[in-house]
Design a protein around this nucleic acid. Structure first.
Lengths: 129, 129
DNA sequence: CTGAATCCCTGCCGATACTG
DNA sequence: CAGTATCGGCAGGGATTCAG
C-alpha cells in the first residue's frame, strides 16, 4: 500500500484519482461501466442468487426484451462479471454464472444499496414539471 | 424468517430487492441515478476534496463545458448530494459543497474504486474489432 | 433455445450564444 | 461570475424479425 486510507474516505491517493476528464482507466469508471445500462444490476442480482439460463433470466425479468438481455449479458461477459457456458447437445442451453470477480460485486451493490436507502426524499428526477 | 442478511452479501432481504423491472424506488438505482452521467463522479471527487465555486470547478475540469457542469450540479443538488450557497453581493459567487449525505458517497466511491482496481484486463469496451 | 440484425425513437452530450 | 436557451450529433434502449 503506497498510501491512502489516511482520512481520505473514498479518495485514494492513486494518480488515477487525479484525472481531469472521464477516462476508461479510472477504476471508478470501470465499475460504473460494468454496471452501466438499464437492467444490468437486476441481471447481476439474479445471478447473485443462482445461475440462470437465458430463458430463466427472461422469466425472472419478464419486461426485458431478448435483444437487451443478450446485449447486457455480452457486456457483462466483456466486463468479466459473467461467465457464459454453452452446454453441447440439444436443445441448446447456455448457463450464465458470475465469475469470482463478478461475485465480488456483492459489496459494491451493498454500498450502492446502503446509500440509496438513506436518501431521504424520493428522487425528483424530472424536477417539478 | 423468510430471509435474512446472513451470507447474502449485497443482497438485502428488503422487498425492494425483488423488483422485476428497473424502479426508481430501488436504492441501488437511486444511487446509480445520483452518479449518472459523464463527469458526475469527477465533480463529486473535486467536492470531496474541498468546496468549489463554479469557475473553480471549471478550472479543475477544463474539458467540461458550462452547460454540462450546470446540468450535473443541478442534478446533484436534486439528488441531495450537493448544497448550493449563493453569496450575495458582487461579483456573484456560488459555493458548492457536499451535503452530509453527499459526503457519505465516499465509501460508495471507494467500493467502486476497489472493484475497478481489481479488474484484471483493460475494459474491452468495443470488443476486439 | 439462444441469440444476431434491423429499424426507430428517445435522451444524453457538447458547442455556441445569450441573460442576470 | 454564474448560469440558461437552443440546436445538432450520437449512442442507448426497445420491438420486431430472422438465423444457428
Amino acid at each position: 500500500m503506497t498510501n491512502q486510507t489516511v482520512g481520505r474516505p473514498g479518495l485514494p491517493a492513486d494518480p488515477r484519482a487525479d484525472v481531469a476528464e472521464p477516462s476508461t482507466s479510472c477504476p471508478v469508471e470501470i465499475t460504473l461501466d460494468a454496471l452501466r445500462g438499464r437492467w444490468t444490476t437486476l441481471i447481476v442480482r439474479e445471478l447473485l442468487r443462482h445461475d440462470h439460463s437465458f430463458s430463466e433470466l427472461r422469466q425472472a425479468l419478464p419486461a426485458l426484451s431478448d435483444k437487451v438481455l443478450a446485449d447486457r449479458l455480452a457486456h457483462l461477459v466483456r466486463s468479466q462479471v459473467v461467465d457464459r457456458q454453452r452446454e453441447p447437445g440439444w436443445p441448446p442451453r447456455t448457463r450464465y454464472t458470475l465469475t469470482p470477480h463478478g461475485r465480488a460485486l456483492g459489496p459494491v451493490l451493498q454500498a450502492l444499496w446502503d446509500w440509496g436507502s438513506e436518501t431521504p426524499q424520493p428522487p425528483a428526477r424530472a424536477a417539478t414539471s
